[in-house]
Amino acid sequence: MRVGLVGAGWVTQYHLPAWARVEGAEVVAICDPDPVALAHRADAYGVAGRYGSLAEMLAAERLDALDIATPRRFHAENVREGARAGLPMLCQKPLGIDLAEAEALVRELAAGVPLMVHENWRFRPYYRQLRQWLVEGRVGEISSIRLDFHSSGMILGVDGDRPALVRQPFFRDETRLLVMEVLIHHLDTLRYLFGEFELLRAWLGRSNDEILGEDRATLWLKRRGNGVPLAVSGNLAVHGAPPAPSDQLWIYGSAGTVHLDGTVLRLWGREGGEASFDPAESYQAAYDGAIAHFVGQLRSGGAFETSAADNLETLRLVEAAYQSSGFKPADTI
């Protein structure tokens, strides 16, 4: 399988090692309008094909699939271009800048080329292990769920920098930040673990003037069908929290309680258990799992876990959060 990688930005340092682990697949070309980023990434991974645009890459290369890893504002355009070339595609989340753009894209493609959304959080090994515990009934009937994603990354350090903006400078200019860029992963993963949810209400806020979008969010949801409550709290400006956030998930059930503490899973109840995972290995494993799933389903003809249609369900929760909160980014106030 000859793969073309669209984009040479920060996230592709995880895409390329994942592709190297897939037997029979090879990234043979990368395109990016930034020649420095393009050369840096292609040199690091020995990729010969180098192009300034997707159109140039499609014209010059014989490809079997595209891996789209560009900023979200380019996703719909990139997917349409790939679809015109008849190529199966793996596209980084989300499919569009908002729900309306993503819905229009899915309608347009209909039953066309295979398209999987690269939502990899659910492929982290501790979430795969947790799903197994839930399937085995170790928690019993669930009564409530809570997820916190907190850090101090938006608080000024002694060096005058905000760690979150040093790591991901593009955060500054995103008008839809925490929910669309980060908590979207958690909403997708929660759907994977528990099924569908409905948003009841949301509160969004902004902690500093170096960003346009929200870096604080609290979402209240209920599980579709039985009304089990779910509270999601995301906050990147928490004093006392570490600069790098980690997932804190609590599940309360009739047979047990689960706490995911970063990369450590603990279960108390009729059947106890504990499983620890290496943080760096788990992060890369999420990319490995998503890309291996894409290739495996292409080869078998099976359905993608994170199909375009499935991703719309996550985006509907994201859109509902913005609409419910009434949040206005800094450049629109």
Rank of each mutant, 00 (worst) to 15 (best):
A42M: 05
E174K: 15
A285R: 08
V139Y: 02
L38M: 08
V79F: 04
L95C: 11
V238Y: 08
S246Q: 14
E119T: 03
V6A: 10
R80S: 10
P245M: 06
R138L: 14
L38F: 07
A100C: 09
F197N: 02
G302D: 11
Q13E: 13
A60T: 07
V158N: 08
V47E: 07
L236P: 00
D159F: 09
L38Y: 08
A44I: 07
Y252F: 14
Y126M: 14
M57F: 07
Y283F: 15
R172P: 03
E101G: 07
D148T: 07
R299F: 05
R206D: 02
A217N: 03
G46W: 08
A217F: 04
A55M: 04
V22R: 13
Q13W: 12
Y14N: 15
V113A: 12
R50G: 09
E196D: 15
A202P: 03
L109F: 07
A100H: 12
D173N: 12
V318K: 01
S300L: 05
I251W: 05
G326N: 10
P243H: 06
R50Y: 09
E319W: 00
T189Q: 08
R62G: 12
A309S: 11
Y322K: 02
F197G: 00
G256D: 00
V22S: 11
S246C: 11
V113M: 10
Y14R: 15
P88N: 09
G205R: 05
